[in-house]
Simulated assay, not measured.
Amino acid sequence: MTHEDERPIAANAQDRVTWALRRAEWAVQARKDQRLRPLGIAAAQYTLLMSVHGDPGLTGAELARRLNVTPQAVASQVARLEERGQLERRPHPRHRHVQELHLTGAGLDSLRDADAMIVEIEQRIAGKLGPKKAAQLRTLLDEVADVVREA
């Protein structure tokens, strides 16, 4: 198959802010996976557990929207975490076909252990940047998120 479209890719494509954000995200995710692996938790599972901890009673569909993944991806992770006794489904008080997600005691323990590993990554980043730059970065990233949501 040939591509006859002659439109060039911008010379600075890999210097864009969005590309820099993606490279940083890949690096952080890779480090999270590396640090969490000995605990038997993937970075995606940590994110899911953290989300349920922060907002107990989320449904799988709500969690999928929040994490920007497919409902099937959430269902697969939920099933794994449920098999391990870290997450449980409870009936929704008003909708009989909807199930809410809640951490179990084991899930909270796992989340605490995982979060200790993530704190080390955070501290390394903040230590390299220093307090002022780390605060600026958080502010800038919040602004980026706001701009993208408004678009």
Rank of each mutant, 00 (worst) to 15 (best):
A43N: 08
L48N: 11
M117H: 13
R31M: 05
A114M: 05
K132V: 09
V74N: 05
H95Y: 01
T70H: 11
A61H: 05
I125S: 10
V74D: 04
L48C: 01
L103G: 05
R66P: 00
S110T: 11
R37F: 10
Q34E: 11
M117L: 12
H53M: 01
G40Q: 01
Q77F: 09
Q72G: 04
E100M: 01
A44G: 08
G54D: 15
G130M: 07
R84T: 02
A135S: 07
R90E: 01
M117N: 13
V119Q: 14
K32M: 15
P38C: 08
A24Y: 14
T47P: 07
A126V: 09
L81S: 03
D33F: 05
H95F: 01
Q34V: 01
I121K: 13
L108I: 11
L63T: 08
L87E: 04
G57L: 06
A79Y: 15
S110Q: 10
Q29C: 13
T47Q: 03
E83D: 05
S51R: 13
G107R: 08
S76E: 06
P71G: 11
R84W: 03
V78A: 12
V74K: 00
E100L: 06
A73Y: 05
V78W: 12
V98N: 00
T139H: 07
N68R: 02
V28A: 10
A30N: 15
T70F: 07
L21S: 12
I121R: 15
H97D: 01
M117T: 11
Q45K: 07
A126C: 05
A126L: 02
L81T: 09
L39A: 09
I121Q: 14
E122D: 04
V78P: 15
H53A: 02
K132Q: 12
A114Y: 10
E122R: 03
G54P: 04
K32W: 15
L129D: 10
I118Q: 14
D55I: 02
R35L: 12
W26G: 13
E120R: 15
E100A: 01
Q123G: 05
E82S: 10
M50P: 04
H95G: 00
W26D: 15
V74Q: 06
Q77R: 04
P38W: 08
H97E: 06
I125C: 06
Q29I: 05
L137F: 06
R112V: 10
L48K: 00
G127Q: 13
Q86P: 00
L63N: 00
H92A: 01
D33E: 14
A106G: 06
E82Q: 13
G130I: 03
V52L: 07
K128T: 10
R84L: 12
A79D: 10
R22S: 13
A126F: 03
